[in-house]
Design a protein around this nucleic acid. Structure first.
Length: 816
RNA sequence: GCCGGGGUGGCGGAACUGGUAGACGCGCCGGAUUCAAAAUCCGGUUUCUUCGGAAGUGCGGGUUCGAUUCCCGCUCCCGGCACCA
């Protein structure tokens, strides 16, 4: 009777070994090739959810695999500890956010340890600690001095009942989540970081990042949205200031039949002053949340302002409208409308009976009816006076030249990317290190007065930040003149903390600098893993911050993450698992029932890493069953005694077949882990090999030796996925040294050799037979044997053979 | 609305560079073991079929000797859209 698989014992022992030997703690060692393996650090919400287990397991598999490849692996862990849920919990349960957060961190750290991840815990980072955030306050003051941060007005969601700013998430169908009041857009002064100053670099470098998925690079390119166009001015009747618009299609300029400005535009306000209808419309436009998705899907509405602009080429009167789809925060807050050649303008024109003018004709000379359908493609200019007959590209140039000469317009490169608004009207975040003085204005807190510490003992009520009610926090002398002044009470967007933590892991204890020389050893991150939902914001902000740190002289590295793996989400009932939706599955119960290895194995087996994984409780059982079979196979084999070496040339066919399967599997799994990151097929291939071992019954000395080689390969190859059971089974196989220090197994290419291969024979692309043929047979021999096949004969009898296609090593297709 | 991704048996998925569709697992069915159950082990499992085959990878077209794979059009689902993290 062999020892049954008891995960709780096996896992406790393995984890104790790793902890006692401190085998995941690393220091800089220039003689070793480093590998920095990182996963997006979690928000300490209270409990791990399946999404965490998935991403941490993927990262741990990659880290352990690289270690077996001989790399010196750093895998750290920490906490993205500031954020809204802590404030919500405080409102609900009266617990201060700090207390709630620290408790959650302790709980989750315990859960992570129970899952057996190979972290260097000596480097743990907690972003809500002053030792951490003082350095982002420091960097902010450096950016302030360089002019990389500035203050301007921008739009927030205003809850008029709770008198507080709401996150987009807190707005449900246009209403405040607690008050149920209609949310308004309101402008307040906020701090911005000039990410647009790096727009070109952030864009261009994407072309030199082969380690990132194309989909993420494409999303970032589109997000940055570089466009080349022309900025032009239209004179407005009765106004001194002309109205400036930006267009990427100057070739359609002669097709402008109206213009539209945003509700917040000064021209609209001016008209509204003595036109109550317009005033009412503008007020109505403000009742909406600030999310772009809301604004873009809103019903397009507009009103004529009753004033006109003058077309800069024709001198025609162009009526001016105010419209809810024009955004003050984009470009100039005004657009020229070309209903003939822009879909949105076309619809708006139809709706309001505005004229539609065709100025572009298809290049192939075909006719179109501009009243029946919009034409957005490029083509040849018509109805455009002196520009008639030019193609779109030439016309864009000619019109741009015309305006640059006359001084009424100029070529301009525009970005969709906007500067990063970092101010939050919240308590639980990093204080923005600014003091407002009546005489000196906004003054950065000097370095020797950092950090500005966030008070942790507070009462959170839900209406406004408690900092605003704490004179002991905000009352402070001006750092410049010493006069009574007022500290900024807004805090940073929590994306600020996550934009540089990856570098800080290299030197988490440095209290004299944001980064020190240790960062030059460990950064950049070699392998970064995290959810696709971060494809744009977090990853773009981090790329930006890395460059700001570089330009501050803290590092030579420009790109923070060399290779990126974006894992799909774990969905439940077709929706993303999130604390906000409350549809989480608790991994804890599963670990208690089956052990960490079963949970890890199932997460890797259930779907390829990049795809969404719809959670299902079925199937975990199957992973547990496999581990039990695996355990029994190894333990039974070991119990039968030691084995001797085998002579590879003296093996019988069955023994050679098992060896071939073993080495084919090593080759496949090596490729799956290193190149393809295809963990589900790693598991499948391991299962296949174990099935083959179990079917192979051979008690001869050579047979047992071949079986042992196969079992040992499975133990080694599965160890990144299920490290605890493999740690125990490695000992079971009689090894003195620990599995964690073993190298990855090698493929013995001589074991892969075969004499005969099976070829598929098709007739007209349909499978009709199989032939077994010598591996080195020439084309004629292959063709002859394929044609001779009995079943193939039935399908080609009496027909002319038009063509025979031979794909070496794969198939023969006979076309009749 | 815009950007990115996805759709293959009852289910999760495999098929890597255009070449055997359904590996591996779950579930289900049958059998062994058991007083019985759990656990375990063995076999079967895309659909239809006149048992020769035929059809089949979201839908409609196209390219090719050959398409899950490439191209065009559509549809549904998921993610992101700048204050969830």
């Amino acid at each position: 009777m062999t020892t049954p698989y008891q995960p709780e014992i096996v896992e406790r022992e393995a984890q104790k070994y790793w902890e006692d030997t401190r085998c995941f703690e690393v220091q800089e060692d220039p003689t070793k090739e480093k590998f920095y393996c990182l996963t997006m650090f979690p928000y300490p919400s209270g409990k791990l959810h399946m999404g965490h287990v998935r991403v941490f397991t993927i990262s741990d598999v990659l880290a352990r695999y690289q270690r077996m490849q001989g790399k010196y692996v750093l895998q750290p862990m920490g906490w993205d500890a500031f954020g809204m849920p802590a404030e919500n919990a405080a409102i609900q349960h009266g617990v201060p956010p700090a207390q709630w957060t620290y408790k959650n961190i302790d709980d989750m750290r315990g859960q992570l340890k129970r899952l057996g991840y190979g972290y260097d815990w000596t480097r743990e980072i907690t972003t809500c600690r002053p030792e951490y955030y003082r350095w982002e306050q420091w960097l902010f003051t450096k950016m302030f001095k360089k002019g990389l941060v500035y203050r301007k007005n921008s739009v927030v969601n205003w809850d008029p009942v709770d008198k507080t700013v709401l996150a987009n998430e807190q707005v449900i169908d246009g209403r405040g989540w607690r008050s149920d009041a209609l949310v308004e857009r309101r402008e307040i002064p906020q701090w911005f970081m000039k990410i647009t100053a790096y727009a070109d670099e952030l864009l261009d470098e994407l072309d030199r990042m082969p380690g990132w998925p194309d989909s993420v690079k494409t999303m970032q390119r589109n997000w940055i949205g570089r466009s080349e166009g022309v900025e032009l001015s239209f004179d407005v009747d009765g106004e001194d200031e002309p109205l400036t618009v930006y267009t990427t299609r100057p070739d359609t300029l002669l097709g402008v039949t109206y213009m539209a400005v945003a509700a917040e535009h000064p021209l609209a306000s001016k008209v509204a002053a003595d036109n109550p209808d317009i005033a009412a419309f503008i007020a109505e436009c403000k009742i909406s949340d600030a999310a772009e998705a809301t604004l873009e899907t809103m019903e397009k509405k507009g009103m004529s302002l009753g004033i006109s602009a003058t077309h800069p080429l024709t001198g025609d009167d162009i009526p001016l409208w105010v419209a809810n789809f024009v955004l003050m925060s984009y470009g100039t807050g005004a657009v020229m409308a070309v209903p003939g050649h822009d879909a949105r303008d076309w619809e708006f024109a139809k709706q309001h009976g505005l004229p539609i003018r065709q100025v572009i004709a298809p290049a192939d000379g075909s006719d179109i009816d501009i009243e029946a359908a919009v034409y957005v493609d490029k083509g040849v200019l018509v109805n455009s006076g002196e520009f008639d007959g030019l193609d779109s590209a030439a016309a864009c140039d000619a019109i741009a030249d015309h305006f640059e000469k006359s001084g009424l317009g100029k070529r301009k490169v525009n970005y969709r990317l906007r500067d990063w608004g970092v101010s939050r009207q919240r308590y639980w975040g990093t204080p923005i290190p600014i003091v407002y003085c009546d005489d000196c204005g906004a003054v950065a807190v000097p370095e020797d007065q950092l950090p500005v510490v966030l008070p942790e003992h507070v009462e959170v009520t839900g209406s406004g930040s408690p900092l605003k009610d704490m004179p002991e926090f905000y009352e402070t002398p001006c750092p410049k003149c010493g006069k009574d002044a007022r500290r900024e009470t807004d805090t940073f967007d929590t994306f600020v903390e996550s934009s540089w933590y990856f570098a800080r892991y290299a030197c988490p204890d440095s209290d004299t600098a944001m980064l020190d020389e240790r960062a030059s050893y460990w950064t950049p991150v070699d392998q970064y893993t995290g959810g696709v939902e971060h494809a744009i914001l977090h990853l773009l902000y981090s790329r930006f911050f890395q460059r700001v740190m570089r330009d501050e002289g803290l590092t030579d590295v420009s790109e923070p993450f060399t290779n990126l793996l974006t894992q799909g989400m774990v969905l439940k009932d077709g929706a993303k698992m999130s604390k906000a939706k409350g549809n989480t599955v608790d991994p804890q119960e599963l670990i208690e029932k089956y052990g960490a290895d079963t949970v890890r194995l199932f997460m890797m087996f259930a779907a390829p890493p990049e795809q969404a994984l719809e959670w299902s409780d079925d199937g975990v059982q199957g992973s547990f069953r496999f581990l039990k079979r695996f355990w029994t196979a190894v333990v039974d084999h070991a119990a039968a005694g030691a084995v001797e070496d085998f002579d590879a040339d003296a093996l019988n066919t069955a023994q050679k077949d098992l060896r071939r399967k073993t080495h084919q599997t090593i080759a496949k799994i090596s490729d799956d882990l290193s190149r393809r990151h295809s963990f589900n097929t790693v598991v499948a291939a391991s299962m296949e090999l174990l099935n083959a071992i179990n079917k192979f019954v051979d008690d001869s000395a050579a047979g047992r030796a071949v079986a042992r080689e196969a079992l040992q390969a499975v133990v080694l190859m599965l160890s990144p996925l299920v490290p605890h059971i493999c740690h125990a089974l490695w000992r079971e196989l009689g090894h003195e040294s620990a599995l964690i220090d073993q190298p990855w197994p090698d493929v013995d290419s001589s074991a892969l050799e075969v004499d005969l291969i099976e070829l598929v024979v098709q007739v007209n692309g349909k499978l009709r037979g199989r032939v077994s043929i010598a591996v080195d047979a020439d084309r004629d021999a292959v063709e002859a044997q394929a044609l001779a096949d009995e079943n193939v004969q039935r399908f080609i009898a009496g027909k002319d053979i038009r063509k025979v296609i031979v794909v070496p090593g794969r198939l023969v297709n006979i076309v009749v």
